[in-house]
């Protein structure tokens, strides 16, 4: 209860700070865009029977707030660099999502659940859309209905050979069979494309793993146990030689000991048992290193999100020089 009260106070303080921040200094969380008028003359196409036309639109590119300030200072009536409602709303939504996910650290709550539901729906559709435009259209439709694809979305698409057309027919059939998995009675036939996927994966993996991981890694382990290191004059350097040799010996011994630990066909007793024990020690060091690096990775991701909140949203810091003038005004004024 005591903790909950403390957290409520913290939340209120944070909300108050955001409120103050929004109306002090240079404000916060605004996005500006620069417009560029695009006008393209489309010539007449006799084959299609279309007349010459002009296609026009306005492209908007996001610019740092300092560009807006500079443009306003030069000409207050300018309309080239303007405030973007769409992007500003987007930024605040992004900040809400970020805080909603972080709120899970306190406890599960509707804001977190809502955000989770959003990302599940968005990411599934996102991958599907990309798969459609990046793979299905140029490869599958491009091979089976080239004229349609060229006249609709990819005019420069290369012509596909007959082998490609056959391959894509094959892919289409298997793809449709794969979708039968969604039907209550057609599940069994979806096993055919699944079999193809498993067969191709097995055929690919057997070669790659043997070549790259079994052979190449074994070869890399066969190191000289005495590795001579020379200095600038070409003479053997004593200490570097000792350290390099020791490193090689430790790698060779380590790999052998770890493999001994993985080898269960022989009872881990006597020399084998001792080797396996050393193997465990090596693995523990490996896991310790993995832990250290995992922490490093996660903290970097957290730092990036905190930077987003402080920099892009709250405008508390400005490490990238996006705003320059008003960035520190609040902090320094305080």
């Amino acid at each position: 209860m005591k903790l909950s009260r403390g957290w409520i106070v913290v939340s209120l303080v944070v909300a108050a700070l955001i409120g103050v921040r929004a109306f002090t200094g240079g404000g916060m969380g605004r996005v500006y865009v620069k417009s560029e008028a695009v006008s393209i003359d489309v010539p007449a196409d006799a084959a299609k029977g279309t007349a010459a036309t002009k296609v026009e639109w306005t492209a908007w590119a996001q610019v740092p707030p300092r560009v807006y300030k500079a443009a306003e200072a030069t000409n207050p009536a300018q309309t080239e660099v303007v405030f973007s409602w769409g992007r500003t709303i987007g930024l605040w939504i992004a900040a809400f999502f970020t805080l909603a996910i972080f709120s899970f650290l306190y406890r599960d709550n509707p804001a977190y659940r809502f955000t989770e539901a959003v990302i599940v729906g968005v990411s599934a559709a996102y991958a599907m859309v990309l798969g459609f435009w990046e793979t299905v259209v140029p490869k599958l439709l491009g091979a089976l209905t080239p004229d349609f694809v060229k006249g609709w979305v990819l005019p420069s698409l290369s012509d596909q050979g007959p082998a490609q057309v056959v391959a894509m027919c094959f892919a289409l059939v298997l793809g449709v069979l794969l979708l039968m998995r969604l039907s209550p009675k057609g599940g069994w036939i979806s096993m055919w494309p699944l079999a193809f996927i498993i067969g191709v994966t097995a055929g690919l993996k057997i070669v790659s793993h043997v070549e790259s991981d079994l052979i190449a890694q074994s070869v890399a382990t066969f190191k000289p146990l005495v590795a001579f290191k020379t200095d600038a004059t070409g003479a053997v350097a004593a200490w570097p030689t000792v350290w390099a040799s020791l490193a090689n010996i430790l790698v060779v011994a380590g790999v052998l000991c770890c493999l001994t630990y993985f080898f269960f066909s022989v009872e881990h007793k006597g020399l084998v048992g001792k080797g396996a024990r050393v193997g465990i020690w090596y693995l523990m060091i490996t896991f310790g290193a993995a832990f250290g690096f995992t922490v490093m990775g996660r903290v970097a991701l957290l730092a990036a999100r905190v930077e987003f909140l402080f920099d892009d949203w709250l405008w508390l810091i400005d490490p990238a020089g996006k705003r320059v003038v008003e960035t520190m005004s609040m902090l320094t004024a305080w």
């Binding site: 903290v299 957290l302 730092a303 905190v306 930077e307 402080f310 920099d311 508390l316 810091i317 400005d318 490490p319 520190m328 902090l331």
Partner: peptide, 10 residues
């Protein structure tokens, strides 16, 4: 995490 970010940011 936030402390150093603010310090470096300023």
């Amino acid at each position: 995490v936030a402390g150093p970010i603010i310090y470096i940011g300023i």
